[in-house]
């Protein structure tokens, strides 16, 4: 139970960690000052969430590991984030599409996690949900703006949605930790979020005058630690200081 709860928390937190890291790459390089501030702010929110989750995970592990050890000293195969969040900032359309496709899931997920029997997770979810509601508003607004903006922006956004679509199905795959925690009344049954997710996402895409991708082929593996080639490079930066200067305090 302890190990499963620990694994379950990692399954939630790694998504925020990796997406926060991706957004952090953009600070100072956004298309406008306002979007720069917003993306940095979302990154900041996500890392704040990560700290809450990993502090709790460290407590559960109870073996002296700290939040930073958990965040920065695992091997690539031990990160269990979904493939979607590790995809690169190819351009602003990809960044916003990735954000939107994750935010809609994240918001639905936290709305359920709020009801968890685990009071710490429920409290974290309550705090996070306010932030994520804003993230979703921001990203869905940009889906509409870019989808229904100029011909160029529409083409770019459509391409981003088409490319990232393949990573959406994995959001609703259950891990072993998921199954165990759902049966305890602690975890969220993500399979139940799927219909609502696609219904809402499709509505936004339609409003944005974008086409809903028809592809039925999906990628998976992140939740089992089998990632795309992008993750290793992201981790190299994330872990640089901890690896180069082991066992030091900062």
């Amino acid at each position: 139970m302890k190990q499963e709860l620990y694994n379950y928390i990692l399954g939630i937190a790694d998504n925020s960690l990796i997406l926060g890291q991706r957004l952090g790459e953009l600070t100072g390089h956004g298309p406008t000052l306002e979007t720069d501030i917003a993306c940095t702010n979302i990154s900041l929110d996500l890392f704040g969430q990560v700290r809450s989750y990993f502090q709790y995970a460290a407590k559960i592990a109870g073996d002296g590991r700290t939040e930073d050890d958990i965040a920065m000293l695992r091997k690539e195969r031990e990160y269990v984030n979904v493939l979607l969040v590790e995809q690169p900032n190819t351009n602003f359309a990809y960044t916003m599409a990735r954000q939107f496709l994750f935010d809609v899931y994240h918001l639905a997920f936290l709305s359920e996690l709020e009801k968890s029997k685990d009071l710490t997770l429920s409290a974290i979810a309550k705090k996070c949900i306010k932030e994520v509601r804003y993230h979703e508003r921001f990203s869905s607004d940009w889906i509409k703006r870019l989808g229904d903006g100029t011909e160029e922006s529409k083409a770019k956004m459509q391409e981003a949605i088409n490319d990232l679509w393949t990573y959406t199905d994995e959001l609703f795959h259950q891990t072993e930790a998921d199954i165990a925690m759902v049966s305890e009344g602690i975890g969220v049954d993500v399979t139940k979020l799927k219909d609502g997710y696609y219904k809402y996402v499709n509505e936004v895409l339609e409003t944005a005058t974008l086409e809903i991708p028809e592809s039925k082929y999906f990628q998976k593996g992140g939740k089992k630690g089998i990632h795309t080639e992008h993750l290793g490079y992201l981790l190299t930066e994330l872990q640089y200081m901890q690896r180069t200067y082991p066992n030091m305090e900062w």
Binding site: G28, E34, T40, N41, L44, A71, M72, Y240, W250
Partner: peptide
């Protein structure tokens, strides 16, 4: 911003993000 992705701890990363965000706010 050059050090955001490589900050040595989560606490430092959060503080650095907040700081750079403040600077953007000052600019604004």
């Amino acid at each position: 911003g050059n050090w955001i992705t490589r900050a040595p701890s989560l606490r430092r990363k959060v503080a650095l993000l907040a700081k750079v965000q403040d600077e953007a706010g000052h600019g604004l």
